[in-house]
């Protein structure tokens, strides 16, 4: 059962990492506009102002 000593903590740490990432995405308001995010990825976001200057 030596394997458990490594595997169980490893599984837990990875899981917690996922949870932390999820909480971060929530905090940075990535779920507020799901429809917008879906189409935003297709935009060519030219930084127009810098171009004109």
């Amino acid at each position: 059962m030596n394997a458990l000593v490594f595997l169980v903590p490893a599984a837990l740490v990875l899981g917690l990492l996922g949870l932390a990432l999820f909480l971060w995405t929530l905090k940075s308001r990535q779920y507020d506009d799901l429809d917008g995010a879906a189409s935003r990825i297709l935009f060519d976001d030219i930084p127009r102002k810098d171009q004109s200057r």
Partner: peptide, 19 residues
């Protein structure tokens, strides 16, 4: 967003499609 960003004094323009 792009039309507003083209205005020289606009710092940020963000539209939410669902809201």
């Amino acid at each position: 967003e792009q039309a507003l960003a083209a205005e020289p004094d606009v710092l940020k323009a963000r539209a939410s499609l669902s809201a």
